[in-house]
């Protein structure tokens, strides 16, 4: 392999960054990088989860990510109730919620044999209702310590970015250095061959659907703390975003091939391209059209390069 697929995502992110900084002639480069790292962290966390699911092979995708984020964020903030020193209680509630949602999703897929797209879609409607019911339109503020942590920085880099980086390294190690990772890739490439080779394919699938829900729950917890409370629509944009970062990052949508560094680069890129268009004064409509065009262009570029190899 001459060029790693993730190079494209990182190049695109660097170009978008340069184009924005060029406009302001170098001013605000630090702020832009800081914002990109903060907002990119959310996309990276949900993107890593979605990448694991997509790696499972054709038809595997989790559409319940936005609802998972909202429900976990809502329940966690409710449990904490603005009391200081409850950050870990909230985290535990969020992760437990994520685990429960992941179990529910997998039960629908496994026991009821629903296609994952439909199963996660139907389940997400129920999670959404649960979030509406428990939220009651109230906006509970996160405890001050947690809010400070989620907007704070460590050695100049946002805390959120450190968390995303830690998770990325964890996922990378899991995929590249453990037997689970090999099993996951093998199941994604050919589920039948993997089963015949003695790989516990269903257990691998279960673990994957659990992890994506837990990742989404963590992202929801952090996003709610970051933005000063959980909102019912806070996860909405992360449905398309999570799929987009996986594909732009160079993972194969057909499964069996995943790319951790690419997801991070793509998450940064997705934020940077929007802020680039913003700084050039593009209206909401044009911004959206250009974002879509750029996504398609990158996918075409990546695919023609693949076929030439």
């Amino acid at each position: 392999m001459t060029m790693k697929p993730w190079v494209w995502a990182w190049t695109a992110a660097a170009l978008a960054f340069a184009a924005t900084v060029l406009l302001t002639s170098g001013r605000g480069a630090g702020e832009l990088a800081y914002a990109a790292l903060s907002f990119g962290a959310f996309a990276a966390i949900v993107g890593l989860g979605q990448m694991l699911v997509i790696t499972l092979g054709p038809g595997n995708v989790d559409l319940s990510i936005p609802a998972c984020m909202t429900l976990a964020g809502t329940l966690a903030l409710k449990a904490m109730g603005t009391t200081d020193g409850t950050a870990f209680l909230g985290l535990a509630v969020a992760l437990a919620t994520g685990l429960a949602m992941g179990c529910a999703n997998f039960v629908l897929i496994w026991l009821l044999r629903l296609p994952p797209i439909i199963a996660t879609l139907a389940a997400s409607l129920i999670y959404q209702s649960l979030a509406i019911w428990s939220n009651r339109g109230l906006r509970i503020k996160p405890p001050e310590g947690l809010a400070d942590f989620s907007t704070g920085r460590f050695i100049g880099v946002p805390n959120l970015a450190w968390i995303a980086l830690g998770l990325a390294i964890l996922v990378w190690l899991l995929l590249e250095r453990t037997i689970w990772g090999r099993w996951l890739l093998a199941s994604g490439q050919n589920a039948r061959a993997a089963r015949l080779a003695g790989i516990p394919v269903q257990a691998v699938r279960a673990a994957t659907y659990l992890s994506v829900a837990v990742f989404a729950a963590l992202a929801g917890y952090l996003l709610a703390s970051f933005s000063g409370g959980a909102a019912l629509n806070m996860g909405a944009e992360y449905l398309l975003m999570s799929i987009a970062v996986v594909v732009i990052g160079g993972s194969s949508i057909a499964g069996g091939n995943s790319n951790v560094p690419g997801v991070i680069g793509a998450a940064l890129f997705m934020f940077l391209v929007v802020s680039m268009l913003n700084s050039y004064g593009a209206g909401a409509g044009i911004k959206s059209v250009l974002t879509g065009t750029i996504i398609i262009a990158i996918v075409i570029a990546a695919s023609t390069r693949r076929s030439r190899q």
């Binding site: 057909a254 059209v289 974002t291 879509g292 996918v299």
Partner: peptide, 19 residues
């Protein structure tokens, strides 16, 4: 992959509609 191209196109259609 159709899922990705249509995903990208959804931004394009949405942008044009907003325009």
């Amino acid at each position: 992959p159709a899922i990705v191209v249509t995903l990208g196109m959804s931004f394009v259609w949405g942008g044009l509609a907003l325009f």
